[in-house]
Design a protein around this nucleic acid. Structure first.
Lengths: 245, 245
DNA sequence: CAAATAGTGTCTCTGAGACAGTATGAG
DNA sequence: CTCATACTGTCTCAGAGACACTATTTG
């Protein structure tokens, strides 16, 4: 193998949650050059005897304090532009994680301050205007994120938007027990569009296996109490949840 | 960077086409150990100053003799199990290529004989039975493909199956000018199910931008001559083409 | 002519969207 | 009581599937 070029391999994480009706990403502040002080995706080098998914799980645990039981983690894509890291030739394998809004601040982080940042603030102008964000790495205007992380984040957001359409993944943003309205809020936040509460309710409860009723209701809220649900067994939606035109 | 583990990075290609009503993958015979003489996906090491997509395009050109103008190429996923290559720590970035059936045999190949192999022959038993193929790398039964390439191929086939549902990518398997029946054959082959020719025709021609009529017809075939079409501008299908239950 | 394939018309059923109306809590 | 939110019922329209029918070629 010595005759072949040597690369460093990292995993980077696009960790998304919905809090306060905004789609937020978990970002760290870089504690060393390059991009000292800038926001960046959490991530790190893959260890010599570690598989890629293991590295992603490890980094997620290190950054969020725990491997949250209801977290969803999937490979997103890989990025290997020769110029993406000034320190050398680094190929990164990005993973996408979807988490419920954590009640406690992110604990156990070994990075210089991990924080939730609204995605809209990182993607110039209107969020939900259809295409790629106005601000990505590269020519024209400095990115708000280190390396090519703006591009990776945009790809992760786009993946999340697309996947809640035909999977039950939106429930990964909700706590273990949730109401239909909470689930609807996830869709509305990620898609950036309002949905009819009544049709949404019918669609969710009419799709076998999407959610299972827990038998109890909320209390102390305004309006009629809502039934609580758990995530169901189904992972694919047939037919899909349609994003309004 | 010297303090971080060194990896080799390769690109591997899942090159698919439809020929003779079968979904086929382009495979090479390995000319050296390990897995000497076995089938494997075409691919090779990424060069020191080469971006990942460039490496994929280069390998595709080397293996198929030309960067076919109507070829579709997209990143599939990355694989980095520490044990996947006995020679050392190799992370591979897999790409998926969709090509029309090439009239000439694969030319210009620098590998020890590239050939089209029906995917069904590599995936134990019935093709189109819904899940993963019976034969993947790992425990139980030796794979017909080197390394973890059976797994990568299966992922590529699954991606192709899913994407022709909501994109116009099926046309990438057709020559520049084609009939609706040829396009239908692509769907039927990849999904392994028969489709109603009349409803299919209505769906395709009724979707703006999927295909553009070329004005001419086939001749010399049995039955009524068919209109010829070109690929249209649309890449996403709304609503999607539904796979029969 | 028959056989084969291309393409159209039409019916039915499912499901999405709009939205009236009812149920049940807090204040 | 009012207000807010949860939930149900019903109408309409778009589109998928089934399939009768017509069109145009070869043999």
């Amino acid at each position: 193998m010595a005759e072949y070029p040597a690369f460093a391999v990292t995993v980077d994480l696009v960790v998304l949650t919905v809090r306060d009706r905004r789609l937020c990403a978990l970002l760290i502040r870089r504690g060393e050059p390059p991009y000292l002080g800038d926001h960046a995706l959490p991530g790190g080098f893959v260890r010599p005897d570690e598989d890629l998914p293991d590295a992603a799980v490890r980094e997620l645990a290190e950054e969020t304090g725990l491997a949250h039981p209801s977290a969803h983690l999937e490979q997103l894509a890989s990025y290997g532009d020769p110029g993406r890291d000034p320190r050398g030739r680094v190929v990164t394998v990005a993973y996408l994680a979807l988490l419920p809004d954590l009640p406690a601040p992110v604990a156990g982080s070994d990075a210089a301050g991990a924080e939730w940042v609204p995605v809209a603030r990182l993607q110039g102008g209107r969020y939900g205007n259809g295409g790629r964000p106005a601000v990505t790495a590269g020519a024209g205007g400095r990115s708000l994120l280190a390396f090519d992380h703006a591009r990776i984040l945009a790809d992760g957001v786009e993946r999340a938007r697309a996947k809640i359409e035909y999977t039950s993944l939106a429930a990964a943003f909700c706590p273990a027990e949730f109401t239909i309205a909470q689930l609807r809020e996830v869709y509305e936040t990620i898609w950036g569009v309002p949905l009819d509460p009544r049709n949404f309710h019918r669609k969710i409860t009419g799709t076998p296996g999407f959610v299972e009723p827990v038998g109890r209701s909320t209390t102390g809220e305004r309006g009629r109490p809502a039934q609580l649900y758990r995530r169901g067994d189904a992972s694919l939606l047939h037919p899909a949840m349609l994003r309004p035109a």
